[in-house]
Simulated assay, not measured.
Amino acid sequence: MRKNSIIMIVLSIIIIGMIIPAGFSTNDNQVVLTYGETTKNNADYKNIVDSFFENQAHIDLKGVSSKIITASEVNKISSTITGKNYNSNQIFSSALVDLGDNENLKVTVDKSKITTITGDMYLSALKSAGITSGHVYVTSPVTATGESALAGIMNSYEVATDVEIPDTVKEAANNEIYTQAEIVKESNVSADDLSNLVDDVKETVKEENITDHQTIVNIINNTTINYNINLSNNDIENLADSIEQIQNVQGDINSYQTEVSDVMNSTNDTSETDFLDGLFNQ
Rank of each mutant, 00 (worst) to 15 (best):
N155P: 04
I117D: 00
E176Q: 12
R2F: 06
Q257F: 09
N221E: 14
I48D: 13
Y86F: 11
D167R: 04
G63Y: 01
I48C: 11
T143R: 07
Y35T: 01
A57G: 12
T139F: 06
E176V: 08
A57M: 04
Q56I: 10
D277P: 00
I77P: 02
L33G: 12
I7F: 08
L197N: 04
M1T: 07
G146V: 03
V138M: 02
G146W: 03
T215W: 01
E272K: 14
K202S: 08
N268M: 13
E237Y: 13
L194V: 00
N87H: 00
A173R: 05
N89R: 06
T258E: 14
N196I: 04
G36W: 09
N234I: 10
V184K: 08
M264C: 07
I131M: 10
T145V: 01
I19R: 00
G119R: 01
D235L: 08
T273M: 14
I216L: 12
T267G: 09
D262T: 03
I153V: 13
V32E: 01
V159Y: 11
I16D: 09
P141E: 04
I81T: 07
N222T: 13
T116I: 05
I177P: 03
Y45Q: 11
G83V: 07
I91P: 03
E203K: 15
A149E: 01
D98M: 01
